[in-house]
Design a protein around this nucleic acid. Structure first.
Lengths: 311, 311
DNA sequence: CTAGGGCCACAACGATCGGTTGTGGTGGGG
DNA sequence: CCCCACCACAACCGATCGTTGTGGCCCTAG
């Protein structure tokens, strides 16, 4: 199907005749006639009843019309998403399981008029380069990079601290615990699929492992959240970390347990990075929104690496 | 833009290489290469970075991908809307101001999984013919037609009685009234634009006029609800009927007044018409929903024509 | 009743587009 | 170091799409 054909259909439906639609589209009436005929052949239904005074929609045509309009609107948005000037606000999030997507959804609810595009860049160097080049407008990251400072023109602000909980199946040794300390987790297998090597997630968990002697496996393909929950539920010797903010929806009977971790509570920090002179109006709104929604500055009893961006 | 091109883009993005995408789409690798190049030229951005081991998305490509998927889904829905088998439930409503659209929105909220298409057919003969032929699945109507019975295979059930109120501007002679009787409305100009001659709306208001000696004008083009409200607000000698269920949103300062009509209250009846042997699963759900949401069977102190479909 | 005008469909022709085959270039792995 | 896998470019060819020209239909005015 060709969008020009759909555009022709909408124009003809609005004009009520092919001739006028043809004039609007700067083609001949015969071209319009052929396009409509082709569309009707492709769909297998008649869209117009031709009269000597024009053409009016059949019932099928009436039903198709709003879908055709929606199709054109969608196409327009698709094209707009890659326009170099005035495109939607483009934000990089590190992965779909983290809190960043939640923040973005919240921002979208608060500002539905601001068009958004979400991308996932994995590597922080890629993200910083994209921010500097203007390919993206902002990125949710834990840090610039352990030990490496951010460039002059890139600013960063910590916007959310995400406390982690332990998630186990019903047969896990710690399933009955009211809470566990990080020291008690030593020796237990913690599984974090989807944590891509080379990202600051890795650095975070590497630090956690080094400091508390945990066993964290990032191996194995990431088949998505559902598969992860299934495996955790069925495997007694396996657990994973999950944000205490994450709202889980899983089938009853899995019996998954969320166990608070204390002494200290590992907290994953999220910062927003952007280029200082990026003029996108949506960026200012996003920063304002995140500044308002921050909260939770109490760091007592929590742990995070010492190389994170300060608040 | 051509949807085949978009499909090619999505296939290539999913496969990570042009070759595999080409195999999936049953074309040559060169064709995929040309399509992608053409799409990139049309959009003015590079969508893939070509490597000797495949092609991966640029940031622009990543941003474009969800829009491309959405475009294909929208196209699929558009095509499905005119499929002869298993198409969305197609319901005719008499116009967008009435209660029928509200009922449909409510039904959609209750059953978001049922795809809906709404059409407007105006003439009841057209609607009945469309119901019999299967072109539409159901129609909201006041009646079959004054004095004319419905065909054997078309069933009808009254689903909603819509009490009417008077709507006036602040300078109207009745603006201060707590309520008015139909008899008191004699001599006042009532304006009902958008009531199309030949529909059962006309028959309804004709009956109302004949019985209570009102002056109802259906003349003038219908410029939509906003224009109607503007005119009512500014014209002291003009009023209109409006459902008491209608939620109005108008700018402050208009000072519009809603005045209950009594002795008796005119009630506009809505019935659902459908073909007895129509097997569409959505139709059964719609009927069940409307049966549950009906209510308001008290007819004391109300008026409606005697030719309406009984409850 | 007829002539004319407005509108859509069909036919023939030409240009452009999109697909295929054939070939070259490039980077990673055995 | 060579080979393989993959993508891009070129030439060719058929299908498609738009144009011009024409005919038919119906409504309206004279």
């Amino acid at each position: 199907m060709d969008l020009d054909t759909v555009r022709t259909f909408v124009a003809a439906a609005e004009a009520g005749q092919f001739q006028e639609a043809a004039a609007e589209l700067a083609v001949t009436q015969q071209a319009v006639s052929k396009r409509i005929a082709a569309l009707e052949r492709a769909l297998g239904v008649r869209l117009f009843t031709r009269t000597p005074r024009g053409a009016e929609l059949t019932i099928d045509g009436q039903a198709f019309l709003p879908h055709a309009r929606e199709l054109l609107r969608t196409a327009e948005r698709a094209v707009a998403s890659v326009r170099t000037d005035r495109r939607p606000l483009r934000v990089d999030v590190i992965n779909s399981r983290g809190a960043a997507t939640g923040l973005m959804r919240e921002f979208h609810r608060a500002h539905p008029e601001i068009e958004l595009d979400v991308v996932m860049l994995l590597e922080i160097d890629t993200a910083v380069a994209a921010i500097r080049s203007g390919a993206i407008d902002a990125s949710f990251r834990a840090v610039a990079a352990p030990g490496r400072p951010l460039p002059e023109d890139v600013e960063a602000v910590r916007v959310l601290d995400e406390p982690l909980q332990l998630l186990t199946g019903p047969a896990h040794a710690l399933a009955g615990a009211r809470s566990v300390t990080l020291a008690e987790l030593a020796g237990h297998r913690i599984w974090m699929p989807g944590v891509v090597p080379g990202t600051e997630w890795t650095a975070y968990y590497d630090d956690l492992v080094a400091e508390f002697g945990l066993t964290i496996e990032a191996t194995g393909p990431n088949f998505g959240s559902d598969a992860l929950l299934d495996t955790i539920a069925d495997t007694p010797a396996l657990a994973t970390f999950m944000s205490e903010r994450t709202r889980l929806v899983w089938p009853a009977g899995h019996g998954l347990r969320r166990i608070p971790v204390t002494g200290p509570t590992p907290v994953y920090p999220h910062a927003l990075l952007w280029r200082r002179d990026n003029p996108h109006p949506g960026l200012a709104a996003l920063r304002a929104h995140l500044a308002g929604a921050a909260g939770g500055r109490d760091t007592a009893g929590t742990w995070m690496p010492d190389w994170v961006i300060p608040r």
